[in-house]
């Protein structure tokens, strides 16, 4: 923030105020979405009375565990790719040394950071996984039938921060500072987009699983996995 006030430029803008904005929109947006959903669910009389904590946990546990559901066992390749992808996409930005320095600089907090070589590898993994997911969407008939342009845009949106992050770190293609600016901008864009696009599945997952898990476990006495 200070930096931007002392030296206003696009670089300091995306490095300061926009980061703030992105995080605020992300957190507030997410809370807002969860809150409105929970409120809306009240209108449907068949949701709250049947929610079961035990079966919500069972459901979430089964679906967060690799190969915990029959569906994952029937789709081994996709399961492996998506698990690796999701782990990397969450872990990399949080434990990246470069990001840690930023946290330290403005908040004087830090936590475990991963070796640069590893996060580099994880970044490449994310990009490769996204490429596979893209190919699958393009080639597999049933998925292609479901896909619309917005799904491809989302893939690009998610890929950009990782691609640009990698390029800026290795000082490839564009000048370091320019690439870094694009990187930060795209990361902020992605954060802002999460609550309002299909990326919201990141937290909606827990809500839908709570409902379906409870329905299957407590009402239908059967498995939802």
């Amino acid at each position: 923030m200070e930096q931007f006030l002392n030296d206003p430029s696009i670089y300091t803008l995306v490095r300061g105020p926009l980061v703030w904005l992105a995080f605020i929109v992300f957190f507030v947006g997410m809370l807002y979405r969860i809150f409105t959903t929970l409120k809306m669910a009240k209108k449907e009389k068949v949701i709250y009375p049947y929610l079961s904590f035990k079966y919500t946990l069972r459901s979430i546990f089964r679906w967060l565990m690799p190969f915990g559901s029959i569906s994952m066992r029937k789709h081994p390749w996709f399961t492996i790719i998506t698990f690796i992808f999701h782990i990397c996409i969450i872990v990399t930005p949080i434990f990246l040394t470069g990001h840690m320095e930023l946290w330290n600089e403005s908040w004087e907090i830090s936590w475990l950071s991963l070796p640069v070589g590893l996060t580099d590898l994880m970044t490449i993994t994310v990009i490769v996984c996204l490429f596979f997911i893209f190919l699958r969407r393009l080639i597999q008939k049933d998925i292609r039938f479901l896909t619309s342009t917005s799904d491809y845009i989302l893939l690009v949106l998610v890929a950009l921060p990782f691609i640009t992050g990698f390029l800026s770190h290795h000082e490839l293609l564009l000048q370091y500072k320019i690439m870094l600016t694009i990187h930060m901008l795209s990361g902020e864009l992605m954060l802002i987009a999460i609550p309002f696009t299909k990326l919201s599945h990141m937290f909606m997952f827990f809500l839908t699983r709570a409902h379906t898990g409870s329905e299957f476990g407590a009402v239908r006495h059967s498995r939802d996995y």
Binding site: T37, M40, A41, K43, E44, I47, S71, K74, H75, F78, R137, Q140, D142, I143, L146, T147, D151, K198, S200, H201, M204, F205, L207, T208, H211
Partner: peptide
């Protein structure tokens, strides 16, 4: 009549095709 379930189910479907063969 419909509300939360309709909205969330439509918005959260990632079009992943895991359900296709079932």
């Amino acid at each position: 009549e419909a509300s939360a379930r309709l909205k969330i189910f439509v918005e959260t479907c990632m079009r992943c095709g895991m359900c296709t063969n079932s």
